[in-house]
Design a protein around this nucleic acid. Structure first.
Lengths: 147, 147
DNA sequence: GATAAGGTCCGTAGTAACTACGGGGTCAAG
DNA sequence: CTTGACCCCGTAGTTACTACGGACCTTATC
């Protein structure tokens, strides 16, 4: 793939990197992607380096990094940077959040599954799910962070 | 707690149900909470039934139901409704989403943890985390649903 | 060369579920 | 009667996009 790559239109860039066209423009607006050069008719013109950067961004988003974190990662990924430690710090923090979320969701899973099971088993004078929601306390106070 | 409860101000209602005051007004705007009666000076005035409803809403939110789902649940929870089955359907669907999310996040966890571990083990000519983000494919294509 | 289809431009607004702000009226205590 | 706490309302900001609409531009066909 080291062929001669002519400049890409925004749609081609979008396709090549797996990101919607509108999202590319959005990333440009918020400064996540650089302003590209333009054709005579004011069309955006991209090169392979943009595909690379945008793909990096997409993968980082898929892994759940926020835009702010990705901005940091992109700085740390700049050539000349050898520092793996800062990236590790960011990643570890993110991993912590992921684990917290998994733990929260696992509790929810247990609660929901439990209520559903009671639905099937009990004679159910009142629906167990509704009963749970109406009751003053949910077992062990599930405090799920914002979805 | 079957004492005589005089009307509550919005702040009291908020405190009693564990929801922010602004959120109460927001819920009123979107029709999740009914428009309460007002005092002579146009202050909102709430009774115990509002505490109950708002608490129900808070718990349902904590369990991860969306506002739309909660609206449905509230209808199903109306007195005279015996139908547990519709609630079960909603809950089962929600449980499915929770499980999907857990599965997605577990994959992410493995990926992040793996990269972090390689950070510590390898001599690391290039940071494994950044390498992963720069490489064309992420193992097994993690397609995480929107957070 | 004309015309039609499709690509791109831009700014704006909508999404979920709130949270925060600002300028104003109201109530209770000292 | 003044101070501080409370409440009113509408609006805007948050996150990460997605969608819309009207105006250009390019490419293909006739």
């Amino acid at each position: 793939m080291i062929t001669n790559m002519r400049p890409l239109t925004i749609a081609k860039l979008a396709e090549a990197s797996g990101v919607h066209m509108e999202t590319v423009r959005y990333y440009e607006r918020i400064g996540l992607m650089p302003k590209p050069s333009r054709t005579a008719s004011n069309y955006r013109s991209y090169g392979p380096e943009h595909v690379e950067r945008l793909s990096f961004i997409r993968r980082a988003r898929e892994i759940g990094f926020s835009i702010g974190e990705i901005k940091e990662l992109l700085v740390l990924a700049e050539p000349g940077r050898t520092s793996c430690t800062e990236v590790q710090t960011l990643t570890a923090a993110h991993l912590g959040k992921v684990r917290t979320k998994i733990a929260d969701l696992s509790k929810l899973e247990a609660i929901l599954a439990g209520a559903l099971e009671r639905c099937l088993v009990e004679p159910a004078p009142v629906c167990p799910v509704l009963g749970m929601l109406a009751s003053p306390r949910i077992p062990e106070s599930v405090r799920s962070r914002r979805d």
